[in-house]
Design a protein around this nucleic acid. Structure first.
Lengths: 233, 233
DNA sequence: ACGGATTTGTTAAAAGTTGTTAACAAAATG
DNA sequence: CATTTTGTTAACAACTTTTAACAAATCCGT
């Protein structure tokens, strides 16, 4: 919950891209890099961002197109970056819902200030936007931390159980290693015992699965970890 | 909720000021005008703003000073406006918490887009600045410090209980450590006994929760702290 | 300022959650 | 098919929170 914010830099020019990511890493953010729209999609699939820094001139879909498509489905912060100061681009970008538009060469300290302010704003928005994940008749409310069962009853989840389920549903259909799950549950980086995850999975299965002996919602990936295998609706 | 947003323009140059207000009025916003910091304070007193457009060069307190003072007490959207593009002013303004910095002469359509985006971002935060917070049938009035229950009855809260509830509702869905809660309740920086918070939470739960045995409004984050998990309406 | 009432802080036992271990079961390997 | 590796389970240990009772501090009317 108090995790480092995740920033994705979308930029086709490698030097600029790396300059940005290393700067923001040094400032304590978690960063990813993409050189175009499809690379961005790949990252978003597995690791949703809190903020995007997108170059407006990209091969394939450009920054404006990306802004339009993302803004339709998400409230993620978007800062557009452009090599030239074009009034039309800037206005169109902002009207499509980009939060900011910065012209190269930009001052890194200024960009950092804008990123900080924007993250503060999107954090507040995320808090009041209740996001609910539904699967197999269950409803998981991420802000109230309540799980509602098939018959509408409240299923009490302990903190660790909730965190585990939250991570699993964040990455449906993807194998998550014990290490990764452990990190998410404990918020501590120190490994800890890997069998602990097994026990937590077992406890969660007891609350979720129709038949805990043949789990359909949380499946085991032998030798690798666990996968959330129910369909998210 | 669907009320017109209130924008205050703080600008000492009458022509620019009126140009802005009439433009935003035409766009469907409610506007006020102030020519300096004290005029702004007068308006804020009686009619809180959703967004401020502040010229950086003002007689008396300048735009930066206003930003610093307001940001300390409020999450209102602030857009700074300046006649010249000064890197230092811009960075300082943004680092003080201004959401944007626009250089004259600016394109009105661009400013409108920025205003729209910023209002969208601050909508959530504004809920938290209202002096009455509603959740699960309760109404907490921050100025009179009264809590009204589901059936309209007054629920007497002690000072500590009120402070605790106020902090919790200020950060809905966020884990707050005992240390953080303790600080907010006692206003002293010296740690004190952490179990004290538990006892206060217990007393508050006794007054709020339908079933204090399985709390739904103030939830425990085992090993971390407490979370306000009711929906703010 | 005094005495009673209320609020706040402290403590320790009870209850609950989380982490660990070890025996056993299941799956993979050769 | 025997062996090795990996996952499941139950029981328990370690740790955290809840609860109740009490002590200290503060508030309030006289």
């Amino acid at each position: 919950m108090s995790e480092r914010s995740h920033i994705i830099v979308v930029e086709d020019e490698p030097v600029t891209r790396m300059t940005l990511t290393s700067y923001f890493e040094a400032q304590g953010y978690r960063t990813s890099e993409a050189e175009d729209s499809s690379g961005l999609d790949d990252i978003l699939q597995s690791d949703p961002a809190d903020l995007l820094i997108v170059d407006i001139n990209l091969s394939g879909k450009d920054g404006l197109e990306i802004t339009r498509e993302l803004r339709a489905v998400s409230e993620v912060g978007i800062i557009l970056v452009s090599a030239r100061s074009d009034d039309v681009d800037r206005i169109v970008g902002l009207e499509l819902g980009a939060d900011d538009y910065v012209v190269k060469p930009f001052n890194k300290r200024e960009l950092l200030a804008r990123v900080k302010n924007l993250l503060r704003r999107t954090r507040a928005a995320r808090q009041l936007t209740r996001s609910v994940r539904s699967f197999d008749g269950f409803q998981l409310d991420l802000s109230s931390r309540w799980l509602t069962s098939r018959d509408g009853k409240l299923v009490p989840l302990t903190r660790a159980e909730f965190e585990l389920l939250a991570i699993l549903t964040t990455h449906p259909g993807q194998v998550l290693t014990r290490e990764r799950l452990m990190q998410g549950v404990t918020h501590r980086s120190d490994g800890g015992n890997e069998r602990t995850v097994d026990v937590l999975v077992r406890r969660l299965r007891a609350k979720l699965e129709r038949d805990p002996r043949s789990p359909q919602i949380i499946s085991t990936a032998h030798g690798e970890g666990y996968i959330f295998t129910a369909a998210l609706e």
